[in-house]
Computed example of a mutant assay.
Amino acid sequence: MTDDTAAPQPTFVLVNPQMGENIGASARAMLNFGLTRMRLVAPRDGWPNPKADALASGAGRLLDAATLHDTTADALGDVAFTFATTARRRDLTKPVFTPEAAMRHAAGLIAGGAKVAVLFGPERAGLENEDVVRANALVTVPVNPDFPSINLAQCVLLMAYEWRRQQDATPPVATEWAGSAPATGIEIERLADHYEERLDAAGFFFPPHKEASMKITLRNLWSRMPLSQADVRTLHGILRQLVRQRDPDG
């Protein structure tokens, strides 16, 4: 794995990171979401850094492939569009994106063949304006304005997650069927018939003028419940047992 052969994706550039631990945690966060391109600009404690390896927790190969640069300008030399992450106002005229919008825009640029980078500043005070001016746009996380500073690795995690969301087709809500399968229309129909028949025999649908609406309500209850085939069998069994206890000869 090298900086230039990874799958199409943004490059994350850590500018003057101070702690090896945060570099390692950033690598782990990146790999969690399928990102493998990291560039380092003048890490305070030098490079390589054994403390980074300790915190990478399985993402050491990403650190091995990270490229080292003396300046931000050098790290961005082959990049067509750069986002700079910042938690404070800069008095610079630039578009400001949320992380989600930034990575959506990045995905479109990358699909068109452009190289995209995201700048992250050092832990103490973030990016300097000398670095920010090299970016085409800013990214600001909508955090608590009274406590806006985000740890370097946490910021990397946020951006990596938003990148992954642009590539992933996972539905926002899904049901785990726990070894069963969704009940079919005919299975729900038979369950409804079973309950309606037994409730009718027990005199549940009373008074007579409300019988039709009560049956519709009951049918609607079954149709809006996300029942599995196992659920249907269980509900049939419950009703049979209740009837058997009430009328052993029935």
Results as ranks from 00 to 15, higher is better:
143 V>A: 15
172 P>E: 13
50 P>S: 10
227 L>W: 06
209 H>E: 15
23 I>S: 06
216 I>G: 08
159 M>C: 13
73 A>K: 05
21 E>A: 12
199 L>A: 10
170 T>V: 12
240 R>V: 13
74 D>Q: 14
154 Q>L: 09
208 P>V: 15
171 P>G: 04
148 P>R: 10
136 N>R: 10
183 A>T: 04
96 V>Q: 05
159 M>Y: 02
8 P>E: 00
186 I>H: 15
37 R>N: 03
46 G>R: 05
70 D>H: 06
101 A>S: 11
106 A>G: 04
38 M>C: 10
136 N>T: 07
234 T>C: 11
134 R>A: 14
88 R>Y: 00
34 G>W: 02
106 A>W: 03
42 A>T: 04
20 G>R: 03
19 M>E: 15
41 V>Q: 02
148 P>G: 13
48 P>N: 01
22 N>G: 05
13 V>R: 06
81 F>G: 08
114 A>C: 07
159 M>N: 03
121 G>R: 02
23 I>F: 05
63 L>I: 05
96 V>H: 02
211 E>L: 02
205 F>C: 09
73 A>I: 03
145 P>S: 10
225 M>C: 15
143 V>P: 09
168 D>M: 13
148 P>A: 14
206 F>R: 15
151 N>G: 01
155 C>D: 12
106 A>R: 02
83 F>L: 04
14 L>A: 03
176 E>C: 11
56 A>T: 08
